[in-house]
């Protein structure tokens, strides 16, 4: 090895070490858990399948997620994308309405006095408790599921936005007053950016809750969707398929959370570190 190349090699070794430190522990834990699961469930007649059997029985679903034989006999991609579409719609509506209502409650003392007690009561209602009522109102599964997403994820968005708006430093309000921003400019140039870290906290909690709610709601309304896929698998005693679906639900929930976190980090750059 020539002396010139040594630093480069060292750099790679250092990088490899850092990566190893992060990656190896979770891999070890995962391997141990799989081993434990395999040992616990491998004897004949056990209630749950061991990982080896899960893989064997769901190979088809894993390697061909795009098949479509009509009805609800579709690949997992279609089920997940149907669920994600419902979440996207319900969550987007909740984000818009939540930020608007949160701004109102954060800005106006009277709006807070009037609405806050109502919000505090409504937000404790479990998502599924809304489903029968929304089915009665919409008379259709699709809008009912979207409404359940909406009503589940809107509360943390409202409450966090309101806290963010209330915590806008007086300094920023003074600057806006001296510059004579009109209310619309104040909203766009001061309020939203200043409250953005709080708003994104609410949005992150909201996306997590809506993903929780959709799986439960779909079990009841049926049709294409990951929730009903799980329920259908249970009814047909395909336990391995349930395990696979849960794995996907977990991964997607994690990705949704990361996605909002990354968007939030980008949008609020600078704001948090004052």
């Amino acid at each position: 090895m020539t002396p010139k190349r040594a630093p480069v090699a060292e750099k790679y070794i250092k990088m490899a070490k850092e990566t190893a430190v992060r990656v190896i522990p979770p891999l070890v834990v995962l391997a141990l858990l799989l081993l434990f699961w395999e040992l616990a469930c491998r004897r004949a007649g056990s209630a749950l399948p061991p990982p080896s059997r899960v893989f064997k029985e769901t190979k088809e679903l894993i390697f061909d997620p795009f098949f479509d034989r009509g009805g609800i006999d579709k690949g997992l991609f279609w089920h997940l994308s149907a669920s994600l579409q419902r979440v996207a719609l319900g969550y987007s509506l909740a984000a818009i309405a939540g930020v608007a209502l949160g701004t109102l409650v954060g800005q106006s003392v009277w709006a807070m006095r009037g609405l806050d007690p109502l919000f505090q009561v409504l937000r404790t209602i479990p998502p599924l408790a809304w489903l029968p009522l929304s089915l009665a109102a919409f008379r259709d599964g699709q809008p009912s599921a979207i409404f359940v997403i909406f009503i589940t994820s809107i509360w943390p968005i409202i409450i966090n936005t309101a806290v963010g708006i209330r915590n806008i430093p007086q300094d920023y309000r003074n600057v806006a007053a001296v510059v004579q921003l009109n209310p619309l400019e104040f909203f766009g140039k001061i309020m939203i950016p200043a409250a953005a870290p709080y708003i994104f906290t609410g949005l992150r909690i909201g996306i997590g809750l809506s993903w929780l709610a959709i799986v439960a709601a779909e079990m009841l309304i049926g049709g294409v969707g990951i929730g009903f896929f799980i329920w259908d698998a249970w009814n047909s005693s395909h336990i391995s398929e349930i395990v696979l679906a849960l794995f996907y639900v977990g991964i997607i929930g994690f990705l949704l959370d990361r996605m909002i976190a990354i968007v939030g980090k980008f949008v609020t750059r600078g704001t948090a570190a004052n």
Binding site: Y172, N174, V178, N274
Partner: peptide, 19 residues
């Protein structure tokens, strides 16, 4: 009422951190 004809330099600078 406040206005730009009496601009203020605030004690703690009050720059908007996101700009």
């Amino acid at each position: 009422s406040p206005g730009p004809d009496r601009a203020v330099v605030f004690q703690n600078h009050s720059l908007l951190p996101w700009l």
